[in-house]
Amino acid sequence: MSHPPEAAALSRPVPSRAQLFLAFLGIAMSGFGGVLPWARRMLVERRGWLSGAEFTDVLGLCQFLPGPNIVNVSIAVGSRFHGLGGALAALSGLLGGPVALMCVAGALYARFGGHGAVRQIFAGVAAAAAGLIVAMAVKMAVPLVRERPLEAVPIALAGFVLVGLLRWPLVWVLPPLLAAGMAVAWWRRG
């Protein structure tokens, strides 16, 4: 992955902790049905804190680590600028607003969730929302199937069948599947 020369990195603005907090709060509160596209828009296009290549690099790391990608992005970006304090500022910006909102939503649901009308509305919203994950799975699968079908499809398919159809616990499935994935990637290394 290419990195811009040091001079370009130095000429970009360095956010304060408060700016990190506010930026990630903004990212979180605009992220309906998915947050990552908003993160790139804010960090690269609007604020210019990261170059496009740097954002891709950070996201690559965060996808490779366990945990919600956007949460990991907040930690990685925050710590890049201000160490632990920056990471905590970005993380609390990202989670503060939505968690408060979820607590209100959870309380309302616990109280009114059993009502028929509420139930029907949720049935409709849930059916539509399921499409977001279907779309994400397709978007993730397409480049993989296009670039290295023989290598990737059997492993992806095994994961889908074991976890999705057979409902095996993830703790049993992931370690052997990851080992297989790594072994194939090692064997086919260019």
Partner: peptide, 27 residues
């Protein structure tokens, strides 16, 4: 790079499984 390439198909398979589980629940 090898770690990233080995991880990708596993991730895709599991996300697809998640899509299936949710769709089966709500549809």
């Amino acid at each position: 790079r090898i770690l990233q390439r080995g991880l990708a198909p596993v991730t895709v398979g599991i996300v697809a499984a998640g899509a299936w589980v949710v769709a089966e629940t709500v549809d």
